[in-house]
Design a protein around this nucleic acid. Structure first.
Lengths: 311, 311
DNA sequence: ATTATCCATACATATTATATATGCGACATG
DNA sequence: CATGTCGCATATATAATATGTATGGATAAT
């Protein structure tokens, strides 16, 4: 049994004539006659009633026709899907995002431009932390991860830079420096520093502490936040100050104010990671769009970068 | 693209090795290698990552595997169904029943024995009248019809006798003959005869009127009943008497009593009709069972014929 | 009666799948 | 480091299969 047999079967059934079906199929009548007969023999079932004027489905044939159509439909879907996958037009991308990355406007921007060129690709987003995302990549439970470098185990991963985001200082309402637009780290050396556990993002964590060191001060470590974005509520609660990626300024919580940091300021670096073996066209396309979107976004003015924010 | 390609595809994917898959498939390794490569070329997609130790699905291949399995599963179902149809073990029978036939205990008996030998065949029942059933057979909206002969247009139909059911007289509560177990038609010649329209069952209708004629009386036609079984409620309402198939004695409505008719008594003949071209094995099997069940049932005692009735 | 239509059969040819033999590269093992 | 083994790829030959061409037979239309 063969898909060709099924195609012949439904075509003959549809046209009620082997001759017509043959020309529809671009072949001659005798071979089609033979194929139909052979198919019947293989199945052990008489599919058509040969009449003087064409052929007519037997009851058994009529019962089998919908099933044959279903197989042909699936087969067609299979080929369409394969073509789409080859062209990077269909499929599914599981996108992993490091802590606080969803707040970055480039992400929706990139997703939007990707949907424009590949509307049939579905996306699933998941927020996690850099080490977990790298593990997810390795075990193929995520396709693309936006991480805060360095990645713990870069073997078999292909990592490329996305952008360097400035950081800002988050101060609670009523802090003595609330009116200062620009603050240096040594000015807040006496305030407890709210920071996330190092395991969730060793690179960014170290960058913050290094910046303190370069500023010549040692931070007093305050309450630990559950994630990167989780520092802001703790600042709002007056537990201390925090150094966060600038995109967190979109969180307007409890009167927290955000302030530019004078040099030396830490930077929140983001990179995109995929498996090295990964060669799904959609994945490459998405990464490409992600990178160009980030490049363009970095050139934009701060007002354009955060369109709905009062930064 | 071919079903064989799909089978090769999933087998190689399952075993992770072309060599293993080849022996699983009962073929040599080189042709399988070729077929896989050819399949990839036809699809324009790389399905496997050739490694030093076997092969591994690419992401695209992994995406396509479930679809390939689905097609193979459907194809398997197709063949199983075809075999079942050939053997008369699967399928669907649309059974049409003439008026009042559902009350005949042979019908459930036959259906039950049929389900014992062909449990995967589904049945749908429909009650109608003989001419409509024959039309339904002709237009293939019914597969088997139990009718009251003669059939109006026996061309292209194959009709065979099932049974001759005795008829009984139905009397309303309080009728002067209620206490008589056996009644002759001339004894009720003065009571209006409730009967169904001739169009709904010309054969049975004529048999009743002929019996009256043979008894030397002419019936007074009373209210017309909508169907054969519909006479009983009208009798209960006191509109007259009726002559009905004996199986209607199972309707215990409003004190109607049923009485054996002394000869000459009409008989309610039943026959089974199928299309002549009909050669679905399940249909033949069902008809065969129907006939044997009827033969056996006719030999049974009246008490056994109507087990749950007080006849 | 004659023609046209449509399916079946017979044979030849082209296409396709498979088998056999062999080569190449990568790992494992002594 | 050499050697053997494993696994996939290639090349060629052969077998299987599908298709094309020519033709016959049956039935309905003219």
């Amino acid at each position: 049994m063969n898909i060709r047999h099924l195609r012949y079967f439904v075509t003959v059934a549809d046209l009620g004539s082997i001759t017509r079906a043959a020309e529809e199929l671009g072949m001659e009548q005798p071979p089609l006659s033979q194929q139909i007969r052979q198919f019947e023999q293989k199945l052990g079932v008489k599919l058509f009633e040969r009449q003087t004027r064409g052929v007519k489905l037997t009851e058994i044939g009529a019962t089998l026709i919908p099933r044959a159509r279903a197989i042909l439909e699936l087969q067609h879907q299979f080929q369409v899907t394969a073509e789409g996958l080859a062209r990077g037009e269909v499929g599914h991308i599981r996108l992993g995002l490091a802590g606080a990355v969803p707040l970055l406007p480039v992400i929706p921007l990139a997703i939007r431009s990707f949907r424009d060129i590949a509307p049939d690709v579905t996306l699933s987003l998941e927020e996690s932390n850099t080490p977990a995302l790298c593990a997810a990549l390795h075990e193929s439970s995520t396709d693309i991860a936006i991480v805060r470098p360095p990645v713990p185990d870069p073997a078999r991963l292909s990592v490329s830079h996305l952008l360097d985001e400035p950081t800002v200082i988050a101060l609670p309402r009523g802090h003595r420096l609330t009116e200062e637009p620009v603050i240096s780290l040594d000015m807040v050396a006496d305030d407890p520093l709210i920071i996330f556990p190092r395991e969730l993002g060793p690179g960014f964590h170290d960058a913050i502490l290094s910046a303190y060191q370069l500023a010549g001060v040692t931070p007093i470590l305050g309450q630990q936040a559950p994630q990167i974005a989780g520092t802001v509520p703790l600042v709002a609660a007056g537990m201390g100050v925090s150094v966060v990626p600038r995109s967190l300024c979109q969180i307007h919580a409890g009167g927290v104010t955000f302030h530019t940091i004078s040099e030396p300021a830490p930077r929140a670096t983001l990179a995109v990671a995929i498996r090295s073996g990964q060669n799904m066209p959609i994945v490459s396309r998405f990464v490409k769009i992600l990178r160009t979107t980030c490049r363009e976004w970095e050139k934009m003015s701060p007002e354009a970068q955060f369109p709905a924010s009062g930064f």
